[in-house]
């Protein structure tokens, strides 16, 4: 106890129990979730490019939407899927879906069942879900030859040739482009094996963690757009006039970022105060 009393303020600050940090962080997220609010976001050109592309998918044109993420990243990527599906279907476009993540299919099925019911679109006519195959690189290459090579049947076991939407739809030449919502290496595979091999236009929706890694591809034109993390999802929803989970996520992003910035400032103030005291000694 005596030792604790003798500690300087900066030492006490630098050795604070981690559970206090957890508590403050928890509150920074819980409070904005309870008191729901809406904070507009600044829009970026890379998200606008994806939005404008999707907006041009009309009158039966097809976009390939790759659901290449799993539950550990669905918080960021699921809102993107929802916004894109709503926008494309609203404009009369059609969606071909595939999944290269083993947990993607059931999540895709959940979101398709929910939104298709709300928007009155028909399976096999307005959308087709090809399902899952392991080994993303090889699967993308096979899709480039013909979607039927890796996916002779769809996720539900139907013969792909029996689905009206798939009539005359064979490979990447028959879709307007690919929007891959990816949380892992599948994003790189779409660039390497989809774009470089077959020349199909590719845009990515990725997690915040991954986002900064894809700017070189954006600059070189290998990607036509990028939706980075939950902020990107919120931007997309704002452009499409949809109030979804992306927009809902921004208030707690704001508070938690404020908390982390506060932590960084405080810990550095304490760090430099201790360093100054040590120098004086």
């Amino acid at each position: 106890m005596a030792e604790r009393k003798s500690k300087a303020w900066y030492d006490r600050m630098l050795s604070v129990d981690r559970r206090w940090i957890y508590l403050i962080m928890g509150l920074a997220v819980v409070v904005p979730v309870i008191w729901e609010m809406y904070i507009p976001v600044t829009e970026s050109s890379e998200v606008r490019d994806v939005y404008e592309f999707s907006d041009d998918v009309t009158d039966g044109e097809i976009v390939l939407l790759a659901i290449d993420y799993d539950p550990s990243t669905m918080a960021e990527l699921h809102p993107m899927t929802e916004a894109i599906l709503r926008q494309v279907w609203r404009n009369g476009g059609r969606v071909l879906l595939s999944s290269l993540s083993q947990f993607g299919p059931a999540m895709a099925d959940e979101i398709l069942t929910r939104i298709a019911g709300e928007m009155d679109v028909e399976y096999g006519v307005d959308y087709v879900f090809l399902g899952y195959k392991p080994y993303p690189a090889i699967t993308i290459l096979a899709m480039g030859a013909d979607f039927r090579v890796p996916f002779p049947t769809d996720y539900y076991g139907n013969n792909v040739d029996e689905l009206p939407m798939m009539e005359g739809v064979h490979n990447f030449d028959d879709v307007e482009g690919v929007i891959a919502l990816a949380s892992g290496t599948a994003a790189d595979y779409w660039i390497t094996y989809g774009n470089a091999k077959y020349g199909v236009p590719v845009a990515l929706g990725v997690t915040g963690v991954m986002a900064s890694d894809y700017y070189p591809y954006l600059q070189s034109g290998q990607l036509f757009g990028l939706i980075p993390g939950i902020k990107g999802a919120a931007e997309y929803e704002q452009m499409a006039g949809i109030r979804g989970e992306g927009a809902r996520g921004i208030p707690y992003q704001t508070t938690s970022h404020a908390v982390i910035l506060f932590f960084i400032v405080m810990t550095n103030v304490a760090f430099f105060a201790r360093r100054a005291a040590q120098r004086r000694r």
Binding site: V16, Y22, D70, P71, M74, F263, I264, M266, T267, F271
Partner: peptide, 26 residues
Amino acid sequence: LVPAQATLFSMLAFYIASAAYRAFRA
């Protein structure tokens, strides 16, 4: 499966806050 995996990874928010406080020094 979904809530378990999503929650496991969501705990990283706490760890990143802790890391920002403990290790993010100039």
